[in-house]
């Protein structure tokens, strides 16, 4: 560990707990993510991976423990919540594009409304982002006219338009047809290489192995094991991790 222990830790989660009614979805989850780090979370379905990253931008409210994003503690303070949300972009499994708006309007909406950016400026940025994700020609279409892969790339561009410091990915390729997965993963890889801090829930082991700095394995609401990809795929410590890996590889 470097001497600069916490200075560059952009996400700090300490003993985060979350209940749905009587069911405990997260049990004392602790994780620290450094700036520019790419962390992939894997685990069987229902293990709490999605809930965990949804707590980080307050789509779910955690009931115990602490979450600090870029030095801002996540509490009931609405100002802090707003700040954290505009610093953390999120990409969903079901894309969640706004069907009544064009692709361009989808991307410019938040910069104009939240960042109070000028419309022309926002459109310029949006076109730049569409170029970056490789579909500038689709700007004036509605989401329904796009393929799944294209929609997900628009969703990534939409999050990037808020120039977030962190990107959260909640199973971004799970709803895609196999032939479209690669185009989304390529965009994500490019993003990782550009130095974005990323927290990714995914089942794509190839992506995890290649892009992740660290892999987190979750099961039954607990963080079971954390390690580098190398460590993970060759030398997993925990029985549950081994079982999971043997089932999916």
């Amino acid at each position: 560990m470097s001497e600069n222990e916490t200075a560059d830790e952009i996400i700090i989660c300490q003993d985060v707990c979350k209940w749905f009614g009587d069911f405990q979805a997260l049990k004392d989850c602790s994780l620290r993510v450094k700036a520019q780090e790419v962390v992939v979370i894997i685990g069987p379905s229902g293990s709490g991976k999605s809930t965990f990253i949804r707590c980080i931008n307050r789509l779910e409210e955690h009931q115990a423990g602490d979450i600090i994003v870029d030095g801002i503690p996540l509490t009931r303070d609405v100002r802090n919540i707003e700040q954290i949300r505009s610093e953390a972009g999120m990409v969903f499994q079901q894309f969640n594009l706004f069907p009544h708006l064009t692709v361009l309007e989808n991307i410019t909406l938040a910069p104009i409304q939240v960042r109070k950016m000028k419309k022309e400026e926002a459109q310029e940025t949006a076109m730049g982002l569409l170029n970056r994700v490789g579909i500038p020609e689709q700007a004036d279409k509605h989401p329904g006219q796009l393929s799944g892969g294209q929609q997900q790339r628009v969703a990534i561009a939409r999050s990037l338009a808020m120039s977030p410091k962190i990107m959260l990915f909640d199973e971004p390729t799970s709803a895609l047809d196999p032939e479209m997965i690669k185009e989304v993963l390529d965009v994500m890889q490019e993003l990782a290489e550009s130095g974005m801090t990323m927290l990714v829930v995914t089942h794509e082991m190839g992506f995890a192995r290649e892009v992740a700095d660290r892999i987190v394995f979750m099961d039954a609401g607990e963080i079971v094991e954390v390690g580098t990809p190398e460590h993970f795929f060759t030398n997993a410590q925990h029985d549950r991790t081994k079982l999971f890996l043997s089932q999916i590889l």
């Binding site: 115990a64 423990g65 979450i67 600090i68 609405v78």
Partner: peptide, 8 residues
């Protein structure tokens, strides 16, 4: 770390 204890 004890962010939750801070009352806004």
């Amino acid at each position: 770390i004890h962010a939750s204890q801070v009352r806004p």
